[in-house]
Nucleic acid binder design. Sequence first.
RNA 1: UCCCCAGUAGCUCAGUUGGUUAGAGCGGUGGACUGUUAAUCCAUGUGUCGUAGGUUCGAAUCCUACCUGGGGAGCCA
Length: 466
Amino acid sequence: MSFATVVDVLSGKVAVGDEVTVRGWVRTRRDSKAGISFINVHDGSCFDPIQAVVPNTLNNYDNEVLKLTTGCSVAITGTVSESAGKGQSFELQATAVKVFGFVEDPDTYPMSPKPHSMEYLREFAHLRARTNVTGAVMRVRNCLAQALHRFFHEHGYLWVATPIITASDAEGAGELFRVSTLDLMNLPKTDQNEIDFSKDFFGKESYLTVSGQLNVETYACALSKVYTFGPTFRAENSNTSRHLAEFWMVEPEVAFASLDDIAYLAEDMLKYAIRAVLEERADDMAFFQQRIDKEVINRLEHVANNKFVHMDYTDAVEILQNCGKKFEYPVSWGTDLQSEHERYLAEVHVGAPVVLKNYPKGIKAFYMRQNDDGKTVAAMDILAPGIGEIIGGSAREERLDVFDARLAEMGLPVEEYSWYRDLRRYGTVPHAGFGLGFERLVSYVTGMTNIRDVIPFPRAPKSADF
RNA sequence: UCCCCAGUAGCUCAGUUGGUUAGAGCGGUGGACUGUUAAUCCAUGUGUCGUAGGUUCGAAUCCUACCUGGGGAGCCA
């Protein structure tokens, strides 16, 4: 007797007639007066549960098998057979059922086999993993993460672990979470009656990172092709379906690369990851297509098989101004595009992800490379229909004189950027990179509309349970 | 943080000219039937009506504040 996963049996990896033991959790039980019970067991290895056919001749049939309810954990031993019923290719003719744990009171078990709202499931983040929707999301999420690592590995990129804790508040990408071991009830003070951070753990103020970019640039300017893939923290009071306080970000950074180089890199990367999901997680995607978003597979296939549309910010402004649609906010060159504008471009004008490039420098970050026109910077956003900005990137300003002038122009303290400036002082090279919001990608690929449902334990304002 | 909406049984929801004992479906439980598939049929229990105040003879229903959730906006990935 050997152990097998549900996917091993359903995919035909185990020969008909072989005896195996499958372990997992009961999804449903149906009893037949023909003297058998049907028990569907899932173990996370694939979307479908396996059906075990349990005869009433088992010695624990009456006192245990008939008491199995949704959520009970079991090991079922049986011979693999081709199914006599519809709905599955193979099933298990049970010869033994071992119960690891019953659900102590089925009436209070929050996960019934009937549909629940996503809001309700979120209140049970520890148990929603057993639902088919969360299981499917997590398998697709894993598939995407593995595919992204594989993509970079195959293209000669090194995965660099940038720090989670940073003492630099100069990253300029939003509100920071403070990291401190000081006693909040008894803060050490300086002579000026200010908090004495020299007494803190790191001897200075420190925070959770809002981006690994600045750090990973140092490794790009040495190892040429690198990327980060890790958690990122933003203390913004953002209450939307596409923001998290703790999320994962993929940030490739490429020496000697131009803006167009990384725009095509982003396109290749997204197509690679999407194809991986379509090939490897067809079972889960069929579920999303059926229950979550009727268009999701068509949309992904379209993205995987068509070139991304590239568009200059300046041209986008012109398109929006001449499209005849009335927007709540007017479009004018030099201001950031509103959500309604981005949505129009991605959803109506293009109908697919669109790469917007070369934004006015006034609305972009200090490190972005100035274009020769003196008005724009080499920045790009990739906007996905339904999600909005999924990727933001840029060529980095590698010319020290231009960089310093930009810092001065924005009133930023040059001393805060000493190590970053060193990259420009010692053997500077043109380089570029972007950040992909990983959960936004998972949302887009699965069709799940709320980002809190594509991460195991979402952290958001007023929400850090589990 | 701003605007709009919602909060009633374990779940999904119905329930306003303010008026007795607040309803349905599903789930659970008991039974019938069945190689069943989110099975079907019969029976059955369930409520601080989000919280705290207020108006009123009387509030799930009207008013105020707060909490939580949803949609949208801003910030961004």
